Simulated scan of single mutants.
Amino acid sequence: MRIASDFKPGIFSHLLACIAIAGAALSPGLVHASDRSDPLLEEALARDLGITPARYAEYLRLERSAEQRSAAAKRSLGSSYAGDWIEHRRDGSFRHVIGTSSPDAQIAESPGVELRRFHHSLEQLQSTFDALEAVARKRANGADGSLDGVNAWYVNPRLNMVVVSFAVGSEKTAQDFIHAGGADTDIAQFATFPGIPQTIVPIRDSASIASAKRGQAPIGAIVCRARAQRGYDCGTITAKNVSVRYGGRGIVAGLSQSDACADSADSGGAWTTSDGKRQGVTFGGQFDAGVTGNCSRPRHQRTTWFGRIDSVP
């Protein structure tokens, strides 16, 4: 596979300048009054993500400047851009990671920002995803093979791979799916899917909920949803633009994936960033057979999907 190599000398200095400007937002300063979350949200952030109020203020400064840095990186890195995301580090701090497929890129130290090298550019990953999407649509219409056991597929920039998740016992079908899309194992990865994709959003009841058109959060951002009774469940965005195959509803594309939990009682519930930007509504999740939710699972084993109402087929 040919790797993008059109990185131009001097272009990275522009990226550094953009990062330095945006990075100023990470310097210590006063927290906006709107950053003082209510006690129930603080409780959820501590319980679900281990985030203290002080760390949350640090996170907000990083997240609010991430969109500007991301746009600058896309312009400067061009075809070598390999995606970006917010990374939660083991010491409790946060970092905005910007990926590149250029082996020559260098980056000066900048608070809260890291340039990370990968083998594939985002364009290459997206091209593989698009090929798999075309195969899936064709097979969903009953042509040229089966999708039985193949449950979801998406670009994962953190792994620098396209991930195809499948049900236990369906590895051969998943391999055939990837082969039909022209991908190989250096760019596509299997992931066993130990549950059943279930749609839990009541489409008719949710028709009046406004679509989220602005302020879409990046991978790694904190998202929360109000519980059916009281309080919040919070997690992070683990993937975006996910295509999910629901048995009775076909393929739903363009969903966001999170490790926050959901239950059938949360059908159609709104998802927002922790500071209130609307992200969409609950569509479904990976649930064990006979179970109506995934809240009993550890966070790293949860898969829940949300998206705009206009994503529903």
Rank of each mutant, 00 (worst) to 15 (best):
G215D: 12
V163C: 01
D176P: 05
S127A: 15
G99Y: 01
A210E: 11
A105C: 05
H119D: 08
I178K: 00
V150H: 06
Q106F: 11
R158A: 14
K172N: 07
D186K: 10
A174K: 04
L147A: 08
S208T: 10
N156D: 15
Q216M: 11
V164F: 00
A180H: 04
R90K: 15
D184M: 06
V164L: 00
Q126H: 08
A210K: 09
P194M: 06
M161L: 07
V168Q: 12
L115R: 06
V150R: 09
A152Q: 12
P197K: 14
H119A: 14
H88Y: 14
A108C: 08
A207M: 14
I98E: 09
N151H: 12
L122N: 02
Q126C: 00
G181D: 02
V150I: 15
R90I: 03
G195Y: 02
G99E: 04
A152N: 08
K172E: 13
Y154Q: 02
G182P: 10
Q126Y: 01
V97K: 06
T100V: 12
P111F: 08
L115S: 09
E123L: 14
M161E: 12
T185Q: 08
G195F: 04
H96D: 10
A136N: 02
D205A: 15
S211Y: 03
A210I: 05
K213Q: 13
N156W: 00
D205W: 09
A212C: 00
S208E: 11
G149H: 09
A174V: 05
Q189T: 09
D130M: 02
P157D: 00
P197L: 12
T173I: 13
A212K: 03
F166T: 03
S206M: 10
L115M: 11
V164D: 00
V155L: 00
G182N: 08
R89A: 07
K213L: 12
V135Y: 02
F193G: 07
A167R: 10
V150D: 03
V201E: 11
